[in-house]
């Protein structure tokens, strides 16, 4: 806040209207909340669909994983789940960071790290699924 908008005694000369102008929701206030719910719903649906796929892959050898993932539907379900999960992870962790990290520099670094981590995890998992599914 610039000091030029202050009286010599330090009180702000800005009107309450001026203080909040441009700081409002800009019609996107519920976007974060809504995406958390949409990805949560997608996670629940996809986890239930993915459960038999994961159980059939797990506990056996590598061939069990490869043969299951070669089926396009199995790969697609896991890809969608990974996408929805990593998105949910990103915006969830964003809230946690914003709640507990108050120093501006650390907060921005943590938010960037959050973005890097979730996209890297999502990309790595998607790459593995696609590589196996395409027969590589």
């Amino acid at each position: 806040m610039s000091t030029s908008s202050r009286t010599p005694s330090g009180a702000s000369m800005r009107t309450p209207r001026r203080k909040v102008a441009g700081l409002g929701s800009a019609r996107s206030g519920t976007g974060h909340f809504w995406l958390q719910r949409v990805t949560a719903l997608a996670n629940i649906i996809l986890v239930i669909i993915a459960l038999p796929i994961v159980i059939s892959m797990a506990g056996g050898g590598q061939e069990a994983v490869l043969s299951t993932l070669r089926h396009p539907l199995a790969a697609l379900v896991l890809l969608l789940l990974l996408l929805s999960m990593t998105f949910h992870m990103r915006i969830g962790m964003q809230v946690v960071i914003e709640d507990y990290v108050h120093s501006e520099g650390t907060k921005v670094l943590a938010l960037i790290g959050n973005t890097f981590f979730t996209i890297a995890v999502g990309a790595a998992g998607a790459f593995a699924i696609l590589k196996i599914s395409f027969g590589g």
Partner: peptide, 17 residues
């Protein structure tokens, strides 16, 4: 915990690939 736990299945899939 799940945020970091997602690494488990992803590393497992990467290893399989």
């Amino acid at each position: 915990a799940l945020y970091f736990g997602t690494l488990l299945p992803v590393i497992w899939l990467l290893a399989a690939a």
